[in-house]
Simulated scan of single mutants.
Amino acid sequence: MIFATGKHALITGGGTGIGAGAARALAAAGAKVSLLGRRREPLEAVAAETGGLAIVCDVTDPDAQARAFAEAREAFGPLDIVILNAGIGDSRPFLRTGRDSWNAIIATNLTALFDGAQLALPDLQAPGKRLIIVASVAGLKGGAMAAPYVASKHGAVGLTRSLALEFARTGLTVNAICPSFVDTPMVDDSAARIANATGKGIDEARQLLARANGNGRLITVDEVTHAILQLCHPDAGGVNGACVTIDGGTSA
């Protein structure tokens, strides 16, 4: 489906998982893609596949993120689609959660969204432009053993809804993608933490996470990517402030 020819899409966390999947899908739809992330090797691999630009950037550093956005504009021109996807997770009892862990999760999952949105919005206030924030079903309900992550994702959903309303009359749409457990490196990390805490094997830990989804399996990157493409399509101009859940029925 070619609908983004000539458009410039910038994706944070673009080297792996959902970000890499979105980059491949948008490139196939005709877009020029700028990929931001911390690790050069996976970024360059996805850039080689997509004809995109790899920019090494820690989104928790506001100056680095500003330089990355400037480099992307210099290469491919003004932004048309921005997907703020970079994120981290953790899981531990609240009373054993240190301030350092809280700060790291909020910095990556929420404050970096604030910075990224402020950097992107000067380009995006026009019909057909898209800002998509990758949040989580954890942003729509509570969750034990993951208070900082859940709080950060609630903030991501609140930011999405507020920006959608504030900029609605410009023609920009702002939407959130809210997946549950997706078969990505982040879930691999979660399974490793479960295995380490419980003595279970990695496969058994992954199965526990899969059973937490309504359909009893992990969501695929392609399923999330499909939802992102739908929101980016020109016919999706009336979808604004939505939180698209992809969870196999967990939140039904």
Rank of each mutant, 00 (worst) to 15 (best):
residue 19 G to Q: 00
residue 20 A to S: 09
residue 20 A to M: 01
residue 20 A to Q: 02
residue 20 A to R: 03
residue 20 A to D: 04
residue 20 A to H: 03
residue 21 G to S: 14
residue 21 G to P: 14
residue 22 A to D: 06
residue 22 A to Y: 03
residue 23 A to T: 13
residue 23 A to M: 12
residue 23 A to F: 09
residue 24 R to C: 13
residue 24 R to G: 12
residue 24 R to V: 13
residue 25 A to W: 01
residue 25 A to N: 05
residue 26 L to M: 15
residue 26 L to C: 09
residue 27 A to L: 05
residue 27 A to W: 00
residue 27 A to R: 02
residue 28 A to V: 04
residue 28 A to T: 12
residue 29 A to W: 12
residue 29 A to E: 15
residue 30 G to A: 04
residue 30 G to M: 04
residue 30 G to S: 05
residue 30 G to Y: 01
residue 30 G to I: 03
residue 31 A to C: 09
residue 31 A to E: 05
residue 32 K to S: 10
residue 32 K to H: 08
residue 32 K to L: 05
residue 32 K to R: 15
residue 32 K to P: 03
residue 33 V to H: 04
residue 33 V to R: 00
residue 33 V to M: 02
residue 33 V to T: 10
residue 33 V to W: 04
residue 34 S to I: 07
residue 35 L to T: 11
residue 35 L to V: 11
residue 35 L to S: 08
residue 36 L to A: 14
residue 36 L to V: 12
residue 36 L to G: 14
residue 37 G to T: 03
residue 37 G to F: 00
residue 37 G to D: 06
residue 37 G to N: 06
residue 38 R to P: 14
residue 38 R to V: 13
residue 38 R to H: 10
residue 38 R to Q: 15
residue 39 R to I: 10
residue 39 R to W: 07
residue 40 R to G: 08
residue 40 R to F: 08
residue 41 E to Q: 14
residue 41 E to S: 08
residue 42 P to R: 02
residue 42 P to C: 01
residue 42 P to V: 02
residue 43 L to I: 09
residue 43 L to C: 11
residue 43 L to P: 12
residue 43 L to V: 12
residue 43 L to K: 07
residue 43 L to W: 10
residue 44 E to C: 08
residue 45 A to N: 01
residue 45 A to P: 03
residue 45 A to Q: 12
residue 46 V to N: 11
residue 46 V to Q: 09
residue 46 V to Y: 07
residue 47 A to D: 13
residue 47 A to T: 10
residue 47 A to P: 10
residue 47 A to G: 12
residue 48 A to K: 15
residue 49 E to P: 07
residue 49 E to G: 06
residue 49 E to M: 06
residue 49 E to V: 01
